[in-house]
Each structure stands twice: as C-alpha cells, then as structure tokens.
C-alpha cells in the first residue's frame, strides 16, 4: 500500500474539518444529489480556495456547514468547527455560531444587503445579536469595522443605505458585517465575481489583510483560477459534487493530476497564452447530473484517458506513490504525474 488517505476526522488541530459531507435535495423529480462525500480541512489562518464549474456544488457545500440550506436539503456527514459538530446541531446552537464563529460573504453585494436598513445598522446588528452591545455602541463599532475594511469616510457612510453605495463598497460592508465578531472561519462565496477587476483586487487585499491581521481562516469559493492563484494557500477542485483534487496552490498549478484540473487550467486565460496562437481550451461535454454516476468517476464521460475501470468504480481521493506524506491528493485512476502517465495497477 503506497497511498495515503485524507487526514482522520478525529484530528482536531484544524479549525474546520469536513468529512464525508453529502447533500441531496428532495425535488418534484425525485432526489437530486448536489454534494457527494466531500472531505475538507481548513487550518488556522489558512486560505483554501474551492474551484469548480458552475453547479458543481460549491455553494451548497458551503451553506450546508452552518445549516443555511432550505428544508428540502438532506445533509449527512460531519463538519467540525474547532472540534464541535455543526451538522445536526440544534437551531439555537447554530444561531449562536453563525456570524460569530463562522461568517459568510455572498456573491451579490447588490442584493445581499437589506435595502431598507442603513449599512451601519446592518453591521451593528451582528454585534447586538452576539455581543449584546447597545445600539449606540454597535454603531461606533460599525464605524471602526468600516474603517478596517477600507471604506473611506466611514463615519458619514455609516448612516447611508446600500443603494447609495457602489458595488465594491457594498461588498466591503458585507465583509465588515462578516468579520464583526472576529469569526474563526470566513466563507467567501464568489465575493468578487460580480465586481470589476480593479474593485476585485481591492476586495482580495482586504481579505488577505484580515487573514494576516486577525488570523481568520478563509474558505474562498470561486471559479476564477486567477483569483485562486492570487489569494489561496491551498486549492480544492470540485467536480459534480465531489472533490477531485486538493493541493497547495503552487503544486496544483505546476502539476495538475486530475484531467479535470488540467482542463480547467487550460480553459482559463493566461497572459502568455494570448501572445501565442493558442486559443482557450474548452472542456468538452457537460457537467453530469451526479445521481447518474454512483459507482464511477463522474468525469469519465468527458475524459480522454477514461478506461473501463473509470466507468465502474469510483476513484478515491489519495496521494501519489513516493510521497505518502504529501498533501497533493487526486481522485483519479490514471493521474497525470509530472508529465508521464501511470497505470492504475502501479498505484
């Protein structure tokens, strides 16, 4: 046996530890699986990027952590925040954890703020709920937080409404709200997707500063590999509800082992590739509906290297022979190892 498995769930040295997390939805057309046996860990002060195509289950996975999914969702597995189990916890327990220990930033700064409350009130609310601050005290703290996330003239803006702000400022308000109680884990679900590039860079800096200054661990969801390269320490690649690869950011970019990851890298623009005649590569095929592939590699239908094995058994998420301690894991029967092909039999 020359493979390693992902860290055991009993290890509590990680801030967030997700094991075997599955989510399915009850719909009119039957049960639809959205997340399938996902393992994930997040260390203190670490920024982990989650990438994957639209619909691969990134948001559902993230929302499941704090019990934010609708009642039609069926969640199984384990998610431990500082050792205590989140999944299946009582609603009252979760309510105390949300916003205080695990906080969220959502994609759309235009709609994720309440249009009829001032931004100061919306930031202050978190503090009032979790730290029993008075409204006046919460407002003062809101101004401090707005300064922290780089909102200019915060003492004036604190009493304005979301529609009076630009998208970038709004997203900073959302971030101020999320970090108000100094959460251990910040889940940022495509926080920059709706923003233009210069504003995006500003937001990424704010998040990086928060990590450096407050030691906040960040789960950063995006489908933009450029952003991942910019901010993440480690990357988890998701495909059709499963984790297909997980590696330190540099390793992943240098040495993608899963064909899907390699495809993703080829599909994202790089400056040097514009210079040549190379066009962006599209990964052929569509993201499959997960429930149709219970015992197979979900990527098999789109993979050029797929074998019979790929279609009959699900590859485990494992490290590669020769580096059992490594943290570069891939779920592939025929991983691409430093440029040369390996047979599954050799693993």
């Amino acid at each position: 046996m020359t493979t390693t498995t992902s860290p055991p769930v009993t290890d509590t040295s990680h801030v967030l530890e997700v094991a075997d997390l599955s989510v399915s939805f009850r719909t009119e057309g039957g049960t639809v699986s959205a997340v399938d046996k996902v393992d994930l860990r997040l260390d203190a002060g670490e920024i982990v990027g989650i990438v994957g195509e639209s619909g691969c289950g990134k948001s559902v996975m993230a929302m499941a952590l704090a019990g934010l999914l609708p009642a039609s969702a069926h969640v199984t597995g384990s998610a431990r925040l500082d050792g205590s189990e989140l999944l299946g916890a009582k609603e009252s327990t979760l309510r105390r954890i949300r916003g205080r220990d695990i906080a969220y930033i959502f994609q759309e700064p235009m709609t994720s703020l309440n249009p009829v409350l001032t931004v100061g009130r919306q930031i202050g609310e978190v503090l009032q709920a979790h730290e029993q601050l008075s409204r006046a005290r919460a407002r003062t703290r809101a101004i401090e937080l707005m300064n922290l996330v780089g909102i200019p003239s915060a003492h004036e803006r604190v009493d304005t409404y979301p529609h009076q702000m630009s998208g970038g400022l709004r997203q900073r308000v959302v971030i101020a709200m999320a970090v108000a109680c100094g959460p251990k884990v910040l889940v940022a679900d495509e926080p920059t997707t709706a923003l233009d590039v210069t504003v995006q860079a500003g937001i990424l800096n704010v998040l990086r500063d928060l990590r450096n200054g407050l030691g906040t661990s960040i789960l950063f969801i995006t489908h933009d590999l450029g952003v991942i390269a910019d901010i993440a320490d480690r990357v988890v690649v998701m495909y059709a509800g499963r984790v297909v690869e997980s590696a330190p950011v540099q390793d992943l970019f240098d040495d993608p082992r899963h064909r899907y990851t390699a495809g993703l890298l080829q599909a994202s623009p790089k400056p040097d590739r514009y210079a040549g005649s190379d066009r962006l590569q599209e990964i052929p095929g569509l993201v499959p509906v997960l429930s149709t592939h219970p015992d197979a590699c979900t990527f098999a239908d789109r993979c050029a290297n797929a074998s019979a094995q790929c279609r009959t058994s699900e590859p485990p998420l494992v490290g590669y022979a020769g580096e059992p301690q490594g943290d570069h894991l891939a779920a592939c029967w025929h991983p691409n190892i430093s440029g040369h092909e390996e047979n599954a039999e050799e693993r």
Binding site: L68, L94, R95, I97, R98, G99, S112, N114, V174
Partner: peptide, 10 residues
C-alpha cells in the same frame, strides 16, 4: 438579504 440576515446569526 434574508439569507444574509440568517447567516449573521440573528
């Protein structure tokens, strides 16, 4: 914004 409010732990 209601999802946000919920996620804040209100």
């Amino acid at each position: 914004y209601v999802r946000t409010a919920k996620a804040k732990g209100l």
